[in-house]
């Protein structure tokens, strides 16, 4: 028994990734959950429009952070601000009583806002847009499509590529008359197709089973999903290049996946995460895909209001995918260096 326990500890000590998983992962989870797992929204970006905009901004409770004051604005402008994600609550005072439009696509923010505004009684009319009944599934399904794309794009792709290395067939591919780009694309395209089909199935099922609305452009969401898929496929390829086994690939993928689920705004609202942790969210691709999918499906937002997440995702796609392809290409072509010239000379001789 003692020998067995010692053996296990010795093996663990040398398996640095598992050790990191055992020690770092619980600490990471504790910190993230401790700080980020917060449904209580304390700061809601708010717009005040119409003739009483100034007075609304002065009288608004602390919960509402009035960042936009437009005395000439109308109810129509207020709805546009919500659609474009520039505010989560917009109070239009061009009607009597004033109307507070609340963005229902930000579930917990909307719940907090509706609760606070409800205390005002008849003084204000509250109208929740995009998700009037504040149904959780309506908010989760768009984000869930991203999670599925990420799972297939990262975990399944990494496992698929690592298995070639594990079984020794990567070397065989390297000596076959296949260009590195053929091998890389040949390995990635099937996962791209599978992830796309999965995403369509989940979206359609979400619409059919949970009546999730699809108010925006299908083409725009398809483009957004494709860009996001390039990012996560790139991460999958990168993970495969630094993993020797399937187990290692899964470990690394977990390190990548878990923070995305917790910090992307998919479950916990970004506004409720303190800045000490929230900055991490802005390095995570799922954060931007969630903004895009919720914006398009629930609010019917267009590219004019979603260009920023699109731009960030596209930049991530170029950087990550290029890095992944370069690393994978290196694994496939160790012969493309000094040796090649010598081989050509030798063969000619």
């Amino acid at each position: 028994m003692r020998a067995m326990i010692l053996k296990e500890f010795r093996e663990l000590r040398r398996d640095r990734r598992t050790m990191a998983m055992i020690i770092v992962f619980p600490i990471l989870l504790l910190i993230i959950f401790g700080y980020a797992a917060n449904f209580d929204v304390s700061n809601i970006p708010t717009a005040a429009l119409g003739p009483q905009a100034e007075s609304i901004s002065q009288q608004a409770p602390d919960l509402f952070d009035v960042t936009i004051i437009d005395p000439s604005g109308t109810a129509e402008n207020a709805q546009a601000l919500l659609r474009d994600g520039e505010a989560q609550v917009a109070v239009a005072t061009d009607t009597q009583p004033p109307v507070a439009f609340v963005d229902g696509s930000n579930l917990f923010t909307a719940q907090a806002a509706a609760g606070a505004l409800g205390h005002l009684g008849d003084k204000i009319t509250v109208e929740v847009l995009y998700n009037p009944d504040l149904i959780t599934a309506w908010v989760l399904v768009p984000a869930l499509t991203g999670l599925i794309l990420m799972f297939i794009g990262t975990v399944v792709t990494a496992i698929g590529l690592v298995s070639e290395r594990e079984h020794g067939t990567l070397e065989q591919l390297a000596v076959m008359p296949l260009s590195p780009s053929t091998v890389i694309l040949g390995k990635i395209i099937p996962y791209f197709i599978i992830a796309s089909v999965d995403m369509v199935i989940v979206t359609v099922l979400g619409i059919l089973l949970f009546s999730v609305p699809f108010n925006g452009s299908v083409v725009l969401l398809t483009v957004g999903a494709a860009i996001f898929l390039f990012v996560v496929l790139g991460v999958g390829v990168l993970i495969s290049t630094v993993s020797e086994s399937t187990g290692q690939a899964i470990q690394m993928a977990l390190f990548f996946l878990v923070p995305q689920i917790l910090l992307s705004g998919m479950i916990f609202p970004l506004a409720a995460i303190p800045w000490g942790i929230r900055w991490i969210s802005y390095f995570l691709p799922l954060t931007y895909y969630t903004m895009i999918s919720q914006g398009i499906m629930l609010r019917g937002a267009g590219l004019d209001s979603l260009w920023q997440p699109f731009l960030v995702l596209a930049t991530m796609a170029v950087l990550v995918f290029t890095a992944a392809v370069l690393r994978f290409r290196r694994d496939l072509t160790p012969r493309r260096s000094r040796a090649e010239t010598q081989v050509a000379e030798g063969a000619a001789a």
């Binding site: 070397e171 000596v175 160790p334 012969r335 000094r338 040796a339 090649e340």
Partner: peptide, 8 residues
């Protein structure tokens, strides 16, 4: 090295 998998 013969197969081109190792750089001499």
């Amino acid at each position: 090295a013969l197969a081109g998998l190792v750089e001499p």
